[in-house]
Design a protein around this nucleic acid. Structure first.
Lengths: 201, 201
DNA sequence: TTGATTATCTTACACATTGTAAATTAAGTC
DNA sequence: GACTTAATTTACAATGTGTAAGATAATCAA
């Protein structure tokens, strides 16, 4: 969006930012975020510490920008056209499969920003994105009448639906993605149809 | 557990720790956790900064201890006997109602540690607790055979169930608890029975 | 290619934060 | 009232933060 707006950026800028981001992800694999300083990031990125401040106000600001980028990439991945081969199987969950496949393809990144739970901003943003998808889909399907008939509050249904999505995805990442994106998506639709966890508490 | 093991603690210790915890929660209401220093905590608690280090290694250590306390209190709250009055309504979700009522009764605390998403350790711990409950309940109900018949992976079902629980609870907290604990618990059981959010993506 | 532009580097500084140490004061225990 | 232990005071070295000014180097535009 903002990047596609032509003002071709100086290659030094993209290089520096990439080095900083890569360094940050590396450090996040090695230590808790509390231990990561601008000093360390710059050192690992082999750029001068002062240069960091030419790009980001501080570390939280850097995280925010990285989360923005993540959402942008996720949105793009989700809208990917389905592979015409196995489109017959479950053509409906294509977007979910796209999402999961993109995560799997960038596992190193998502394992630290979503899997390790010390950078809540990324989970926060993804949850927001999923909530909007869930709300939109509910509107499209016109679930409203059915829900009111059953006495279900719409906003609670959205909380519930998006929470189960993000929570399951995060758990999947934390366990090193032991299932294929297709299989996990299939499980989602099965879980939505049946109910096996009555009265969890 | 560890406290009930008799070694009556010096009142100065409990006083100091309480002051520190209260100060921390206060500060967390006012600013992001990145801005909270040992300095500030001690100042707000009106104790000397050095004293902080007599009780906690650092701020993350303090958070861990506070999370331990939280889980302990939640466990105790969940096991509360049901009020004999309305026990007929839905006697099964008593524990969930107990949990939600305890959260509502300590809203100020839970609003910052679960509602504001900058202290993931608390959410982490609660999720762990809920996962164990969900897994236990699944075992008790013997859902295994039904699930395998439907082709549902057990661990994924646990992820899904606990995620929907914690996510909904957190969203409820973030929106200032607009529903009573009883109502929200009822909604949970309704949502588990019906399915309105087909193909969210 | 040259000149102008702009990103990065270098060095420096003031300030806050951290974690620890040693000696002193104050509160709680028996 | 004597003993024990928690909290305070003062101090210090180390690290991190954010900013400034000038020098260097890479990119761009002609």
């Amino acid at each position: 969006m903002k990047d596609s707006a032509k003002p071709r950026t100086d290659p030094r800028i993209v290089r520096t930012r990439q080095l900083l981001k890569d360094a940050f992800i590396e450090l996040l694999q090695e230590m808790d975020i509390e231990k990561i300083s601008v000093n360390r990031i710059a050192e690992r990125a082999t750029i001068n510490r002062v240069t960091f401040y030419l790009h980001y106000r501080d570390i939280p600001d850097m995280l925010e920008k990285m989360a923005d980028d993540m959402i942008e990439e996720l949105q793009a991945a989700v809208e990917q056209p389905p592979p015409p081969s196995r489109s017959s199987d479950d053509i409906d969950s294509v977007k979910l499969v796209n999402l999961l496949e993109h995560i799997a393809a960038n596992a190193k990144f998502y394992k630290v920003v979503l899997g390790k739970k010390r950078t809540p901003i990324f989970t926060e943003r993804l949850l927001k994105m999923l909530s909007e998808s869930v709300a939109l889909r509910m509107k499209e399907l016109g679930s409203d009448s059915i829900m009111t008939k059953a006495g279900i509050q719409k906003d609670i249904a959205i909380w519930y639906g998006s929470a189960s999505l993000i929570g399951t995805i995060v758990a999947w990442i934390q366990h090193d993605m032991p299932y294929t994106p297709q299989y996990l998506a299939k499980q989602f639709s099965l879980l939505r149809r049946h109910q096996f966890i009555d009265k969890p508490l």
